[in-house]
Design a protein around this nucleic acid. Structure first.
Lengths: 228, 228
DNA sequence: TTATTTTGACTGAATTGTCAATCAGAATGT
DNA sequence: ACATTCTGATTGACAATTCAGTCAAAATAA
């Protein structure tokens, strides 16, 4: 679902190993789809969900709007696949951060929270596109369906980490509530960065989240993150 | 800007006391506008921002769509005034709660947080309409303009309360960050209640917010709210 | 009557989706 | 190397629909 994967597909499985770089068509099917999804994200960020049109997406990609339908059948499907891509990208980002972190619950939580403030997740167009979808998700069950699995997984992970941290660290807080507060704080800070008249930086956003972690787990966190 | 205010306006200050019910035109005008704004909120909640049409708003109010234009000149203006109404309603609600609370900072914070979970603010259609606007606000400077004053005031108030609470209560936290976390937690809980596959109740939402307050100000708050 | 509100038909613009024609490159043949 | 065929990506014109906004006429109240 990422660009590299699409690029690698341009070389057929039975390709001659010494054949250098086969650049098949003007663009391969997967690469075009990915290009159009990126264009959709950009238009969502620039104009908002309600004013996102196929023509604008196509124009942004330098292609005809007929091609968008050719690749995605309908506007609905294009938006679905865009949301799915963002959802997967987000999931892969935090999952990778988690896998790279030490096993101690505080270190895991630190990695999980930091992951949301790293590129490519914390890029302006990504955040803006997310906000656009959030606004529509409530009235479109399909959008909830597309993301609920990833959302539930994230929830389960952060709740599990908080439960371990509460137990091992001797805290009294309810881990479910603590996990929920941390999650919505990240989301809220993102939204601040998109909608406030004078938004703060991603650094300040992360500091805010760490202040929240410190409030719940003062022995393990400071404003700068994991206490060491 | 609320219904009662509009209704009270129906009786002019110089009205004859024994004249039973004068139903002046201008009042009818305000009542219609209010009716259409309520219909707009309902449609926003039901179909989302992108699929909100004048025809649907009019149908919901049992009126013709030409009348919507007659009263609001354009769809843009209708949505602006709807947002303005919601913003004022929200502001009046927390301002009233604050005025009714004791002057102690912990009591003020408790009142401020509870206010967001009381009707009419915490009604499903209100929350859903807010979410719809949030999604579009990023790409529409006009929406930010309309609300920024009220938003900034809320921010200043909750920061001030947190600053007093930190000082008087001997806490070490940064009051600006604590205030920000509390604010985005309320917003995030609202969004949860709108978009989650199996949302929790307003009570559970308030408990979550109080868990956050407890984390920052454990001497003054419990899961049930203000410690007494 | 006069002023205001309300309707509903109409217009013009925007937008999604269709489709036949075109075109670029790959495969195949010579 | 060169020409021919084939495939499927790409275009752009077109149809159908939806929707915001206009307006003349009707209804209603003063």
């Amino acid at each position: 679902m990422n660009v590299d994967a699409a690029t690698s597909r341009t070389i057929p499985p039975d390709a001659d190993p010494d054949a250098p770089k086969r650049v098949p068509r003007k663009q391969s099917r997967e690469a075009r789809r990915q290009q159009l999804i990126e264009a959709t994200i950009a238009v969502l960020a620039e104009r908002g969900y309600a004013r996102t049109t196929l023509t604008e997406v196509a124009r942004h990609a330098g292609l005809s709007h007929g091609l968008v339908i050719f690749h995605f059948q309908s506007k609905e499907r294009l938006l679905e696949e865009t949301l799915l891509f963002l959802s997967e990208e987000y999931r892969e980002n935090w999952a990778a951060a988690l896998a790279a972190a030490p096993d101690a619950p505080a270190a895991q939580l630190d990695a999980l929270l930091r992951a949301d403030f790293m590129p490519p997740i914390c890029a302006p167009d990504r955040l803006a596109a997310w906000c656009g979808f959030w606004g529509e998700a409530q009235s479109r069950p399909m959008y909830q369906d597309k993301c609920s699995v990833n959302d539930d997984d994230y929830n389960a992970v952060i709740e599990g980490i908080c439960a371990r941290l509460v137990r091992d660290g001797g805290y009294a807080a309810d881990p479910v509530l603590a996990a929920r507060v941390l999650r919505v704080t990240v989301e809220g800070v993102w939204q601040d960065m998109m909608t406030m008249t004078e938004p703060y930086s991603a650094d300040e956003g992360l500091r805010t989240v760490m202040a929240c972690a410190q409030a719940f787990f003062p022995d393990h966190f400071t404003l700068a993150g994991l206490r060491r």
